[in-house]
Design a protein around this nucleic acid. Structure first.
Lengths: 161, 161
DNA sequence: AAAGATTGATGGCTCAATCTTC
DNA sequence: GAAGATTGAGCCATCAATCTTT
């Protein structure tokens, strides 16, 4: 989600039209992602970099680029470039895979592990702030609405994926 | 069988933790924006290009780049490049501003106007699909939750904007 | 041939620096 | 000096083409 519709008027009624509903969804996501990015910037990480480090930390072993690509749901060439930059940052190392010479693996460095951990704490703060800024009822309403939206999307796009 | 309201989504209870709530928000926005992008692609437009055309169509007169930048909430240099590409596409023309020779304006071409209009129809379809895929109650819940989230964000970030 | 990674070109965005005009 | 637009460098993503290895 990159560009979202800009709001012209801060009119009164929250959501009456279907147009406003989609717009509100994009706005809310954009605002929240802005917070996540700002929190990560404190650690010197972009969201893309953080997510890759996170995947590596979660599996706690060097992972082949193909697996990183499917995990991040992005093109393989993107991983190549991301790892390039992460390697420059000293957060990740490229390893050869002895069992398949076509394959490369990415391994966390010590610094990479540390940055991932502090990044995770930053993100946890944002999530907690977000959740606690909502009343129980609002949070429940949001959860219900988002759940329904996700189900609706899967339904409209033929289930699988 | 339980007392699940409306038996809408009796699936794996979507949101229990606050972590999942933020994640669901991002997921929903991502899915929906994917639909918007796919709809616009039918017209050969990116979302960024569409939004610029839309701003021009809405004001129905050539607008200075500075105004386009503030309208799209992006850096001025981005407008320069976007207009470059839109000009290549034949959707927009660069005009000199006689009253201030520092300023350039972007004007819709006939083709640009047409593409914007068909793009708008495409988007309206997506919005309608989205809204109608939700039950009244789910839609109301989503509207309430998103409204609260937006208010919470403004509160947390010191009101203005 | 197919899988895995890389390269090159492109789109969309940022910031810092620059140039012209006010 | 400050405003408006542009350029250059970089980040993050895509796709198409390529190269090596299986």
């Amino acid at each position: 989600m990159k560009n979202s519709p800009h709001g012209s008027s801060a009119t009164t009624a929250p959501e009456a039209s279907p147009e406003a509903l989609a717009w509100a969804l994009f706005m809310a996501a954009e605002k929240l992602s802005g917070r996540v990015e700002a929190a990560l910037q404190e650690v010197g990480l972009s969201w893309a970099k953080y997510e890759l480090l996170r995947q590596l930390a979660q599996r706690s072993e060097p992972l082949p680029f193909s697996e990183l690509a499917s995990g991040q749901r992005c093109a393989a060439s993107n991983i190549t470039q991301l790892v390039d930059r992460l390697e420059i940052d000293g957060l990740v190392r490229r390893l050869d895979d002895p069992s398949d010479r076509r394959s490369k693996r990415a391994a966390l460095t010590l610094l990479g592990t540390e940055k991932q951990q502090t990044g995770a704490k930053q993100i946890a703060i944002v999530q907690a702030e977000f959740a606690s800024a909502l009343s129980d009822d609002d949070r429940a309403a949001l959860a219900r609405g988002l759940g329904a939206a996700l189900v609706a999307h899967d339904f409209l796009s033929g289930i699988s994926r």
